[in-house]
Design a protein around this nucleic acid. Structure first.
Lengths: 340, 340
DNA sequence: GGTTCGATTCGAACCGGTTCGACGATAACA
DNA sequence: TGTTATCGTCGAACCGGTTCGAATCGAACC
């Protein structure tokens, strides 16, 4: 492989001149620049990433820490990953994907060895043990998922409080007065998935304000059980006319549950889910849903991270950016059926 | 961050001695080694990846090229990615995830800049334009997916010919004589997904040998349409007692289709799919299926790649490793119902 | 005409590792 | 006792970039 020394020799200039001609960091005469560029082309020269990293302390790589947890809906994670890698590439960065079970040691290892210029953490928990390492790291980081203590780090997440309120308000406006809310299983909460209770609490508060009766239940997220659990909930609350799902697997299981019971949405029951548009398309889920904005969150996290990496003044205070929930109307909500 | 020079100074030895003490490539007295190790600990020294890469021409990173195609079932891809990253980590390699639309230029860029020690290509097409670049690259590569011309490269794939035969044989042995085979949509084939026709042709050949009537159809892989298409096929072939699915989306859509028609598997119809165990669990698909072995393919591709990277003699001839299909019996096959 | 300035180029140092050759000391061997 | 390995260590060079300071030169300025 050609080195910049080869380029310099072919162009008949010094190595430093070749370097400046390519980087443009000092003025170079037009003819020399042309000769250097010609040499680059004829030698098919590409700079060696390791050498450049050593010289500049910049790798142009972002570390992406994904956390895959037991009984969590893995396919949903892919949207975040793609959002990050694609936007990173647009900004000139490649992505090192870290799926280690032990996120803490992976983070330390990569950070200390200076393999990346910054980190993005997915699936951040309420009390995430990776945050301590990240705060102490030499590289900046962005979180996707709001932890209990976001101090000092940029955070991006869906506004789950607003989402909970929005779900209740939307059905209330249509005239619904009794609803069921299905959350993720409780271990998700125990493991630090505080967004589950943020949404649920907000929904319950809003329901109270509006005089709506809201029945909140946790449900498993593996499907064999979730179908029967949904059926059980519908049995237990026969007067409920609205169903709110903060649980991807429940949404995926619902069509067959409704079909089994001879119900259709929105004629018999109004349904609002919470999942990405891509998720809906992949499984052709016909329910109105709050978009989880996976792609957008990944993109924003990258934008911010890159600007931190490339900014000279590290003045910028950290931000907590909560995306306002947006409803994708797929027609599964309507005025509740007349009481019989 | 501490450098090896700092370590050497603290330990009171030269840089080269410190290096040898840590790598073990030359004999070092026990006391010096102990002092160096102590210095490493007290300074929390971690080698700089860029510097090491420059010196050794080894990055300990593998490039993973994923191809996400329109109307292909993206979640299935995640299994491959995880199989690769996890096994790579076990072998001491990290993974650079490349999702660029333009795989050719991504491959060239990463290869020329020496960012990785080797490549793994996912979703390899019959006539994949990335292969030319890969063959010319300085780094070795493994393919997941069998191309038309696999010469010179290690290839890993499911044995789709055996899979096609196995599907037909399994139902034939139970007494089925008329079956429907649902393939991926035709654009998958046109785009180079030759595995679709490899399976279909093998199934058809085997059916002919066994005197089985096999109706082969392509079906869309986006779900809105696939449900009605499945229903149409069942209408068109009322005497079919077996359903073979080489199409993830079709499998995901089948439960509701059967329920709509009041059919159950295997009482009314026997079903065999082709998808990973993880996929089945995620969507709780109750059908017997040929495991697509995504995880295992990723692992084998890594093993082979690493051994090529680390072997000094580049003698080893390339291999084509086709995994023998294995049936996960979930009880959706049985003796066909008595003719009426 | 001497000075200053900007444009252009070069040489050298540096980033942080690894590795080769040399050298002194010690042990084994004849 | 002289010779030869072996062991342990060091210094220097190298990997392939970037960047700083200095040198050259012609144009502009006073």
């Amino acid at each position: 492989m050609a080195t910049i020394g080869d380029v310099a020799r072919v162009a008949g200039v010094s190595r430093s001149t070749a370097s400046y001609a390519l980087s443009g960091k000092r003025s170079i005469s037009a003819e020399v620049r042309a000769k250097v560029e010609q040499a680059v082309r004829s030698l098919d020269y590409t700079p060696n990433a390791g050498a450049r990293a050593l010289a500049t302390s910049q790798t142009k790589v972002i570390g992406l820490l994904a956390r895959f947890l037991e009984d969590e809906f893995a396919p949903a994670m892919l949207q975040y990953i793609l959002g990050v890698t694609n936007r990173a590439r647009e900004r000139g960065y490649d992505t090192l994907l870290l799926t280690d079970e032990d996120g803490v040691s992976a983070l330390r290892r990569i950070s200390d060895s200076r393999m990346v210029d910054g980190f993005i953490l997915l699936n951040v928990a309420e009390n995430d043990d990776r945050l301590g390492i990240l705060r102490a790291a030499a590289q900046p980081g962005s979180l996707v998922g709001l932890p209990g203590d976001p101090s000092g780090i940029d955070v991006f997440d869906l506004d789950f409080v607003a989402a909970g309120r929005l779900m209740v308000e939307t059905l209330h406006e249509l005239g619904h007065r009794t609803m069921i809310l299905v959350s993720q299983p409780e271990h998700v909460l125990e493991r630090g998935g505080a967004y589950v209770s943020r949404l649920a609490n907000a929904a319950q508060d809003r329901a109270r304000e509006l005089g709506v009766e809201l029945h909140h239940h946790f449900a498993p997220s593996s499907q064999p059980q979730i179908g029967s659990e949904l059926a059980r909930l519908l049995d237990a609350h026969p007067d409920a006319t609205g169903l709110l799902l903060n649980n991807e697997a429940a949404a995926a299981a619902l069509p067959s549950v409704l079909r089994d019971r001879g119900l259709t949405a929105p004629e018999d029951i109004s349904v609002i889910g919470r999942y990405s548009d891509d998720f809906a398309r992949t499984f052709s889920l016909p329910y109105t849903a709050i978009d989880s904005a996976a792609d957008e969150l990944g993109r924003r996290a990258v934008e911010r991270l890159v600007s931190r990496i490339e900014s000279t003044s590290d003045a910028e205070p950290p931000i907590v950016d909560l995306i306002t929930p947006r409803i994708d109307d797929r027609g599964s909500t309507a005025v509740p059926p007349a009481r019989h």
